[in-house]
Design a protein around this nucleic acid. Structure first.
Lengths: 346, 346
DNA sequence: CTGAAAGCGCTAACAT
DNA sequence: ATGTTAGCGCTTTCAG
């Protein structure tokens, strides 16, 4: 059997209380006994038993991470990277993170995550769009929540967001810089705050370049932003017989679907139409052409969320409740200078 | 404060022991008191506190999941899917799973995962290639291990493997069925058991078709099986000026690198060279052409590993220690009938 | 079939 | 500056 705090106390000739204090680095302990206790801990290879700690302190030492199953398992490792960031930072802060995926069609009758009921997490990080019913449910417990990449207005929780407006601006500005004027915008559900912010950035860039916004160049009635939907959206857009030379897709997944459709229709990318995505998840996907995109610091977002959570849990949280992560334009092969007039419709 | 077992006991007019027994579905309790207790539990919305349970029973209720960071964060969600499977099945079995990524260059001096030291996991699932030093370290603890997609011969632990031999056979047989005779094999490190098994399948298929195995059609001195390495490997192979009409790549990642190189050299796939991969991770990646591959039941592998682990932890484990997951040929566009003689070198 | 009671290993008042 | 001690909420003998 592994050593317990009693063994350490005996070996160091102190009480268990002292050992506990040393473990928690309490300064009431003289440095001599501190070193003595620490040596005993070393020699016995002692490590406090999580469950015992948890019971005594009423703190599990765990953080929860909730994401919908389709978000987590989709082929672009966007949320996986975020999760990895939380895991990384949690280790720094001596926490474990318990992941739970929930069905995206979570409904009222669905169970509250077990780790909440069993008081097995001290705080919960929620990534991506989360059903409001669930958020409301969690709000009934007094457990702190930190959101990543999703913001539910009525609730007042810290959130780590992508600077979507700036990203939308940069993406659109890049196309404008390439000489494009007729720039389409393709997205999924505009209800999603991230998407609508990217749309805002798009409109702002147009405005400051003196290019009028044209509704007929937008296409955003798809339910969610995946490849298939990008494929469908560009199809619909082209059916409208409007003329344009560039597309800002709300994310890489849709951009890929768009490029695929254009390829099939023998509309060359980027010479006829430039396409820019968002998220830069497909960085090493060897696409043809490689996708110009807006890079998002995914791992870093997970790290920041855990940092905020740690501050909350240690009551040191004073910083901003809303963190905007900077994004970066990554120019690759799917965008280029406008090549004069290319008629899309013969 | 949430209800405790005492509250339930009081409400149901029984002792806490009885409540505990009811929770664990002990049949010594009369069905009348059982229902009475259960109703009290319902009404109080009682859920046992994990940490308290853990301390009393010496069981954390957690499983560990170890994977190297590069495996987990690589763009193909192979291990992510496996992890998802464990999470899914763990929930069924009332476990939580704690993920820990380790650096792939883990060395002796590196720390033992914290969840082992703190006795915070009852068993550990290891996915993919894991440094032997770590396995040895874990073997010093009495904690059960279950491997997924990796097998370390000296150690005697249950393992969930892909049926790689059968997969290699199916892949190669498919190419043979397409009329190919000169079939190259490209892989990374043959030290990896999965890879060498796929190689075996390849050789077996050739043999049973009466096609002699030719060393000069193989290329496997790359350190690991990623796109970049596939790209380099096919380059080396072509430098040898050998003639072939099909390639079996040890996984999809390498296959993609291979296709990319062939494209760049204007060698059409599949008309000049058919390419088949393995893993089917890139299924929905809209590659051009879409990759023929061997599908591996990733989520299911995670599920099985947790099932085995649960059996071990409840001492019901009697089944096979080595589970071979069946694989399936998925024919897409990167393979086709042999098109007569196509000279690769002019 | 059920209850009493002794811990599990640690923390945190409160003493000294 | 350190020790004493009473729990934390649950499980698990052992009695009855």
């Amino acid at each position: 059997m592994a050593a317990t705090i009693k063994d350490v106390a005996r070996k160091a000739k102190v009480s268990t209380a002292t050992v506990s204090l040393v473990i928690h680095n309490n300064d009431r302990i003289s440095s001599e006994t501190k070193t003595r206790v620490k040596r005993a801990i070393q020699e016995l290879n002692y490590h406090p038993f999580r469950s015992a700690r948890g019971l005594a302190s009423q703190k599990s030492g765990n953080l929860g991470f909730i994401v919908t199953d389709d978000h987590f398992s989709r082929s672009e490792p966007f949320y996986t990277q975020i999760f990895l960031g939380t895991e990384f930072q949690a280790r720094e802060s001596e926490y474990y993170v318990l992941l739970t995926t929930i069905p995206s069609d979570f409904n009222e009758r669905e169970n509250t995550p077990r780790f909440v009921l069993e008081k097995n997490v001290e705080g919960i990080i929620l990534a991506g769009k989360i059903p409001h019913k669930l958020i409301q449910k969690l709000d009934n417990y007094t457990i702190p929540l930190v959101f990543i990449d999703y913001y539910f207005s009525p609730s007042q929780h810290p959130v780590v967001m992508i600077d979507n407006i700036s990203g939308g601006l940069k993406a659109t500005q890049h196309l404008i810089d390439c000489g494009h004027k007729d720039i389409a915008f393709i997205a999924g559900d505009l209800q999603h705050p991230s998407i609508s912010e990217r749309f805002q950035g798009y409109k702002m860039a147009l405005q400051s370049a003196g290019i009028p916004f044209r509704e007929e160049l937008t296409q955003y009635d798809e339910p969610y932003p995946a490849r298939e939907q990008g494929y469908l959206a560009i199809k619909k857009l082209l059916n409208r017989k409007v003329q344009f030379t560039a597309i800002f897709a709300c994310n890489d997944a849709m951009a890929i679907g768009i490029v695929q459709y254009l390829k099939e229709k023998n509309i060359p990318v980027p010479s006829a139409i430039s396409v820019i995505g968002f998220d830069d998840v497909e960085a090493n996907l060897s696409l043809d052409p490689p996708l110009t995109s807006i890079r998002v610091p995914k791992v870093e977002m997970g790290i920041q969320a855990v940092k905020i959570m740690t501050e909350i849990l240690t009551r040191k949280h004073t910083g901003p409740r809303k963190l905007l992560m900077p994004v970066e334009l990554v120019i690759r092969g799917s965008t280029c200078k406008r090549q004069g007039e290319v008629s899309l419709y013969k």
